[in-house]
Amino acid sequence: MLPVPNAPAGPCVIAHRWAYDPENVQRARDELRLHLAKWGTPVEVMESAVLVLSELFTNALRHARQPEGRHVETRFERRASGVRIEVHDAGETRPERREVHPDEECGRGLVLVDALTGGRWGVGERAGVGKMVWAVCGPAHAGVEVSA
C-alpha cells in the first residue's frame, strides 16, 4: 500500500495505491472496514461497501491493462449518507452492466454493485491514464448521489 500523490487529505478521505496483486483486494477490504468502523458506519452499510469495493477492485485487476509501473488506486470518502468508494486503474475500457445468462460463471459483478448501491455508481475521468469507477453505499432511504 502506497500513498497517492496529490490526493485529497483529511479524516474523511482515505487514498491508497496498490500493486496489481490479487492479494491486495483483501488488504483494501480490510482497510475500508477499518475506516468505516472508525467512522461509526452502520453494519449493513459496511457490509455492502466492502462487497462493492471487492467487485470494483477485482474488475480493475481482471480487466484493466497493466502498464509497467501502474497501480490501482482506492479512495474512500465519508459522506453523510454513507461512503463513496473510488477505484482508479490504467485501463481505458469503461465497465458496463450487462445481463448474464444463468449458465455463465462470471459477469455479475456490476449487477451486484448496481443492486447494493441503488444505482449510485458510475465511471469518470481521472488524471493521467485510465478511468475511475465510483460507487456510493448508504442507507436505502438515502437520496441518489450522482458524481463523476
Rank of each mutant, 00 (worst) to 15 (best):
V136D: 00
E104C: 08
C106N: 09
L110F: 15
C106E: 12
D114G: 03
M46T: 15
A37D: 08
S54D: 15
L34G: 10
V50M: 05
N6T: 10
E145H: 15
R84A: 11
F57A: 02
E73W: 08
M1W: 11
G138W: 00
I14N: 03
T93M: 09
T58F: 12
C12F: 08
F76N: 00
V13A: 15
D114V: 04
P42K: 10
V4K: 04
A9G: 14
R98A: 13
L56V: 09
V25R: 10
R79Y: 02
W121K: 07
H101C: 00
W39F: 05
M1V: 09
E125H: 14
V146S: 13
H71E: 13
W121P: 05
R75P: 03
V50L: 02
P42S: 08
R79K: 15
G118P: 10
L53Q: 05
V4M: 07
V144Q: 15
L53N: 02
L2T: 11
N24E: 15
N59T: 06
S48I: 00
Q66I: 02
P95M: 09
E105K: 15
L61T: 00
V123E: 04
H71C: 13
R75A: 10
V87M: 11
R75V: 13
R108T: 14
A80F: 03
L51R: 12
L53T: 01
V100T: 12
F76V: 02
R27I: 10
G107V: 07
D103R: 14
N59L: 06
E44R: 04
E31P: 01
L32W: 08
E47N: 15
V144Y: 14
V72I: 15
V136N: 02
L61D: 01
R27H: 12
L116Q: 08
D30S: 10
S48C: 04
R17D: 12
V45Q: 01
W121C: 10
L51V: 15
H141R: 14
S147L: 11
V129I: 14
E92R: 05
C137N: 04
K38Y: 12
D30M: 07
E99D: 14
Y20W: 04
A90K: 05
R94V: 08
G122N: 09
Y20N: 08
K131C: 10
V13L: 11
V111Q: 14
T117R: 07
F76K: 00
A60E: 02
R78L: 14
H63E: 09
H88Q: 05
V45R: 00
R79V: 11
V25S: 08
R75H: 12
L32M: 05
T41V: 12
S48H: 01
V83R: 00
A60L: 04
L61N: 03
R98F: 06
V123D: 04
V87W: 11
V133L: 04
F57S: 01
L110Y: 09
V144G: 09
G124S: 14
G118E: 11
P22H: 12
V83Q: 01
D21K: 05
F57T: 02
R17C: 11
A60S: 09
A15W: 03
E86A: 10
V83C: 00
G138Y: 01
L116S: 06
P139N: 11
R94W: 00
K131Y: 10
D103F: 14
E68N: 11
N59A: 08
R62A: 14
C12L: 10
S48N: 02
A127G: 06
L53A: 03
A142Q: 03
G82V: 05
F57C: 03
E68R: 14
V25W: 05
